[in-house]
């Protein structure tokens, strides 16, 4: 994110205002595998009666970019920060942001946006082939 776009655009990512406010009231507590950074309010409490917790996204700001372990902390589900002891469950897949609206969006079977072979249509018949 260039300085210019941080100054002149507010869509897509953090602005310099966000950066300044968070620098003023919070300090960084960690960073996840995608480069998103997490902050905790230094003094005082937020509206929930606890110190506020922040995330500053790397590049595009999209809430689905927060992986599961940080999601819990960010939403006050757990108070412990995910550290090196954090172990994902056996059934957990690697985190992936929501791709809806992008070129990598999920297209269900039968979608016209999905390249596929034409299925047998009604009215087709099976021709006899010799041998």
């Amino acid at each position: 994110m260039s300085i210019l776009s941080e100054i002149f655009s507010w869509w897509g990512g953090n602005t310099w205002g966000t950066r300044f406010t968070i620098w003023k009231i919070a300090s960084q507590v960690g960073e996840d595998e995608f480069g998103n950074r997490y902050y905790l309010q230094r003094s005082g409490v937020g509206p929930l009666g606890k110190p506020r917790r922040f995330v500053v996204y790397k590049d595009l700001a999209d809430a689905s970019k927060v992986p599961a372990e940080w999601h819990g902390w960010l939403h006050y589900t757990v108070d412990d920060l995910p550290d090196e002891n954090y172990k994902p469950r056996a059934w957990q897949k690697p985190h992936k942001m929501n791709m809806t609206g992008t070129g990598k969006a999920y297209r269900p079977k039968g979608s016209i946006l999905r390249p596929q072979k034409r299925e047998r249509a009604t009215g087709d018949y099976k021709a006899w082939k010799p041998e």
Binding site: D124, Y125, K126, A127, W128, P130
Partner: peptide, 18 residues
Amino acid sequence: GLKTQRLDQPYVRRGGKL
């Protein structure tokens, strides 16, 4: 049965094969 095993084109046996 009207949709399977249909003869839909002429065949001629040449060299032992249709």
